[in-house]
Amino acid sequence: MINIGNNREETASVTVENKETRQQERRLVEASQNGDKKAFGLLIRMHQKRLFRFIYGLLGSFDMTEDVVQDAFVRAYKAIDRVNPEYAFYPWLSTIARNLAYNQIRKEEKKDSLDGMQETGFDPRSTELGPLESLLNDESKKRFYEAVQSMPVKYRTVFALRHFEDMDYAAIGSYLKIPPGTVDSRLYRARKFLLEQLKDLL
């Protein structure tokens, strides 16, 4: 019973918060549809951090991420008339960005397989964060991103889709064109790796 009570409070607060941001977002989307660039600018500021984190998780490169995020917003603005303001804006935006990132991932995967990467074992890749470091004020955050960075792309993509976008195995599988069982095993390895690397941060 105690459990139920706690959950109720949680749900209630989340719903209230969601409702407010949803309403705000809806007004912004409607204004953008009427050609208000400033409103769209606010939408950019609302969502760019989350989108950047996700795309960076997929691509692992600052420059590529920057390009994809920018391209995604531009495309979203051009197609804003197709959005139903009743629905949340972010899922639509992230789908555009994800699809833009898709070709990059394919390229990366090919490169990886040419390097003779095996399913097991992790490639000690470059862990330099570059410009991303300026967005991480905390040493532990840098370590986290270094660890994510050092994962091979096939594990990192599954990890990012699951943890940053909350997609289920079937959805991840159909996006990456791999069976859900493979999603499962890749995610298992990615988590195992992170747990080993970041044991002290838990």
Partner: peptide
């Protein structure tokens, strides 16, 4: 917690660039 990107003037610059 650790994946949250921090505040930086980068975001404002990036947003204006997109605009």
């Amino acid at each position: 917690k650790k994946s949250r990107l921090d505040e930086s003037d980068y975001w404002e610059k990036s947003a204006s660039k997109i605009e």
